[in-house]
């Protein structure tokens, strides 16, 4: 019962990140997820230094602002400096991450409960719901009141992501496959692209706090990439990616928490790391055996 909350948080986050990841992989923008999950750190530290609280609204705002700032900087450097996209991205997100680490160390916020290690690998295990001792606690208002706030946040973030994908599904699909066509029929691909980046930022921030930056990157990319090697149909790909994300989240958490115990060691491993590793393992399998793993030859005629 204790693990119910961290497991549902991991599940919710993995599902919503993997959903967005499908479009990132198709648009060859996977590294946007990488960049944005890195710059959440300076945003959160800056908002902490400015407001003095670790309240989630302030943190979300700070991380959101820094994500927008990052996207704007990347575009500016790419357009004005005529620098290649990935290099522009590399310049911006590494510098901002460095700034975040420096601010942390300089002010010794590290003693509060923000530190670089948490930012990187999260702290899923700390979300244990101590009041939830049995199934009866699910209807006990007193116990429910002590639910970790991260659960609620992950839930509304998931709802937002699903809502976005459902509302914009036509535009997203068109813009991902053929931006010119999308523009010609008035589907506004650049607006859809910007909204997608914004949603990635929202997902990355909500996830960042609960599970850390690394699992976010893995969840954006691995399930979607795995599914892409298994099928050629988008709907199937999305469904498969959700399935893979769910399996990685649940199995990863269980393996990390109880796996060593089964082998006779009294320790537990990092759940976030295990989830990322598992999803990478699925991708490896798909790379070796996926029916659509090969690049198709260019269509002739």
């Amino acid at each position: 019962m204790f693990s119910l909350v961290p497991m549902s948080v991991a599940l919710l986050i993995c599902l919503s990140c993997a959903l967005l990841g499908n479009f990132l992989v198709l648009r060859r923008q996977s590294l946007i997820g990488d960049a944005i999950s890195h710059v959440a750190l300076p945003g959160i530290v800056a908002s902490f230094l400015l407001t003095g609280t670790l309240a989630s609204s302030a943190m979300m705002l700070g991380a959101g602002v820094s994500a927008l700032f990052t996207v704007a900087m990347i575009e500016l450097i790419r357009r004005l400096g005529r620098v290649e996209n990935s290099a522009a991205m590399g310049v911006v997100f590494t510098s901002l991450f460095a700034l975040g680490v420096l601010m942390l160390e300089w002010n010794e916020v590290g003693t509060v409960h923000l530190d670089v290690e948490h930012a990187l690998y999260g702290n899923l295990e700390s979300l244990i719901w101590f009041e939830g001792t049995s199934l009866a606690s699910l209807v006990d208002p007193q116990a429910l009141a002590t639910l970790p706030p991260q659960l609620g946040r992950a839930a509304w973030m998931g709802a937002l992501v699903v809502g976005f994908v459902v509302a914009f599904r036509r535009g997203l699909v068109m813009a991902s496959f053929d931006a010119d066509f999308a523009a010609s029929v008035g589907a506004r691909p650049s607006l859809v692209g910007l909204l997608l980046v914004l949603m990635v930022a929202v997902a990355a921030i909500a996830a960042f706090e609960a599970v850390g930056a690394i699992i976010v990157i893995a969840m954006f990319i691995c399930p979607a990439a795995t599914a892409r090697l298994i099928t050629n149909r988008l709907a199937t790909q999305v469904a498969l990616s959700q399935l893979i994300a769910a399996v990685s989240a649940l199995l990863g958490y269980v393996l990390a928490g109880y796996g060593p115990g089964w082998m006779g060691f009294e320790v537990s491993l990092s759940a976030a790391g295990m989830i990322a590793t598992l999803s990478g393992g699925f991708l490896l399998l798909a790379c070796l055996f996926g029916p659509y793993r090969h690049r198709r030859e260019a269509l002739s005629g």
Binding site: F220, A276, T277, G280
Partner: peptide, 14 residues
């Protein structure tokens, strides 16, 4: 790149 960096890093964290 994204898949490799996150998977390897995840394994490292474990």
């Amino acid at each position: 790149i994204g898949a490799v960096l996150s998977t390897f890093f995840g394994l490292g964290v474990v």
